[in-house]
Simulated assay, not measured.
Amino acid sequence: MTKIKICGLKREEDINYANNLKLDYIGFVFAEKSKRYVSLEEAKKLKNLLSNEIKSVGVFVNESIENILRYIDEDIIDIIQLHGDETEEYISKLKSKTNNKIIKAFEVKSENDLELAKNSSADYILLDSGKGTGKTFDWNKIKSFDRNFFLAGGISKENINEAIDKFNPYALDASSSLETNDVKDFEKMKEFVEIVRRKR
C-alpha cells in the first residue's frame, strides 16, 4: 500500500486538488530559495483549507529549530521534513522539543549516503536525487536497502510501476512532474494518483 505525497503546493487550487484526490501527504516548501516557497501566513491559510485526513509536511533546509517549532505551534504542519545538512545532534534536539514526526531527506550519491540514511534517528527517511532536481538517482543503489522510505526525485507516471514493483517504497513523493508551467496540474496529479492506487 504505497502512500502518496505531493510536494510544493502553494495555491488554493492545489489544496482543492489534494482534497479531491484524497492524498496521504502534501508538502509546503519553506526554503526561500525554492520557486515553490510559501510564507508562514500563506501556508496557514492553505492548511485551513486542507482536509483533516491529509497530513501536511513542512519542508525545511537548515532552518533553526525555533522557527520550525513555530509552524508546529500554529498548526500549519503535522510532519517536519529536513532537506538540508541537519545532523543527528540537530534531529535529537528537535525530537526533544516536539512529538511531531520527522522525515530526513538524503541525497543518494554513494553507499555512504545510504548507510547514513539507514542509521538515521528520524522517524522516516526520504531518498532523493537532490533538492528539487526533478531527476531520478541510480535506483540500483537501493536494491538491498532495508528500511521504509519515501522515494523522491523524478517520480513520474513513466516510472511509478517500476518504483513500486522493485522497491516497494513506503511512499512516492512527486512535485515537478505534476506541473505545467510551474503550477500543479490537476490532470497530471489525477493520473499519477490513479496509477499508484491501481498497484495497491
Rank of each mutant, 00 (worst) to 15 (best):
M1L: 12
T2E: 05
K3P: 03
I4L: 02
I6G: 00
I6F: 06
L9Q: 01
L9E: 01
K10G: 08
K10L: 06
E12S: 13
N16F: 10
N16I: 08
A18E: 03
N19R: 01
N20F: 13
L23P: 00
I26Y: 00
G27M: 00
F28T: 00
V29N: 09
F30G: 02
A31L: 09
A31I: 06
E32R: 13
V38S: 09
V38I: 12
N48K: 15
N48T: 07
L49F: 06
L50M: 04
N52Q: 15
E53Y: 08
E53S: 13
S56M: 07
V57Q: 05
G58T: 04
V61R: 10
N62V: 08
N62K: 11
E63L: 04
S64P: 14
E66F: 12
I68S: 07
L69K: 06
E74V: 08
D75Y: 14
I76D: 11
I76E: 02
I77G: 02
Q81V: 01
L82H: 06
G84P: 06
D85L: 10
D85N: 15
E86G: 09
I91W: 06
S92R: 15
K95H: 05
K95D: 08
K95I: 07
K97Q: 14
K97M: 15
T98H: 10
T98R: 12
N99P: 15
N100D: 07
N100W: 08
K104F: 04
K109W: 12
S110P: 11
S110T: 14
D113V: 00
D113T: 06
D113Y: 01
E115S: 12
S120M: 07
S120D: 09
S121A: 08
L126D: 05
L126Q: 04
L127V: 05
D128S: 03
G130F: 07
K131I: 12
G132A: 11
T133Q: 15
G134E: 05
K135V: 12
T136E: 15
D138L: 09
N140C: 07
K143Q: 09
K143W: 10
S144A: 13
S144R: 11
F145W: 11
R147Q: 03
R147S: 04
N148F: 13
F150C: 04
F150G: 01
L151K: 07
G153P: 02
G154K: 08
S156Y: 06
S156R: 09
K157W: 12
K157R: 09
K157N: 14
E162R: 12
A163C: 04
I164G: 01
D165C: 09
K166H: 10
N168T: 08
N168Q: 13
P169K: 02
P169S: 01
Y170K: 03
Y170P: 03
L172A: 00
L172M: 03
A174N: 01
A174W: 02
S175N: 02
L178R: 04
T180D: 10
V183T: 15
V183C: 12
K184L: 01
D185N: 11
D185L: 07
E187K: 13
M189Y: 10
M189E: 10
K190L: 08
E191S: 13
F192W: 06
V196K: 03
R198Q: 14
R198E: 15
